[in-house]
Amino acid sequence: MQAEPVKNWRVMGSSTITGGSYNHISVMGEAVSTGDMECQSLRVMGMFQTHANVQVGFANIMGQMDVGGQLRGQRVRVMGELTVHGDCEVEQFLSRGAFSIDGLLNAGTIDVRLYGPCHVREIGCGSLRVSLKKPFFGRMRHVLTADVIEGDDVMLTYTKAHIVRGDRIRIGLGCDIDKIEYKTEYACHPRAHVASCEQRGS
């Protein structure tokens, strides 16, 4: 067993590190990390850029975070903006902001409320829920775009995807999906656009 890391790192101005293992990281200003990094909890209020892989226990991103490699961990909460260039593998992914993931978003549960534009190449999950933010001003509508979505429980609204595969699928308002493959349950909003749908196995 490795010893518990006890170092904390707090950035109020601007700072650069080469990576390492930390207990708590809090970024209020601007921070850059150039190597692989590991921490128990991470809080970003400003801007945090990492060029390599990140392993976190709990990440709360209220500002902007940019990960060059992979993001792995337990819980990620996005209230601001998250960009991941590799894969993102977490147990719980909650978004109330915007994110863009170039690789696979692999999570146990994903809960997305569309406060901004969201892009993922591929989603693989246990349960996925996408809902629209409560209207505040105007009619600005954001969408989630993905190439492939695969999961057991999938509930979508305002999603644009090529293929959606899963066990139980519910398609809500504003979806545009080319192909659906479901196993047991399927429901579709009358105003959603689904090009083709088939049931596989049961």
């Binding site: 593998e89 692999n106 146990g108 693989g124 999950c125 246990g126 999961g151 057991d152 429980d153 595969r165």
Partner: peptide, 20 residues
């Protein structure tokens, strides 16, 4: 992947969980 899931009877959720 599709054939694998049909053959083994596991779900997408399990497969991705094991990968994680």
């Amino acid at each position: 992947k599709k054939e694998l899931l049909d053959l083994t009877g596991i779900s997408y959720g399990q497969l991705y969980r094991w990968k994680r």
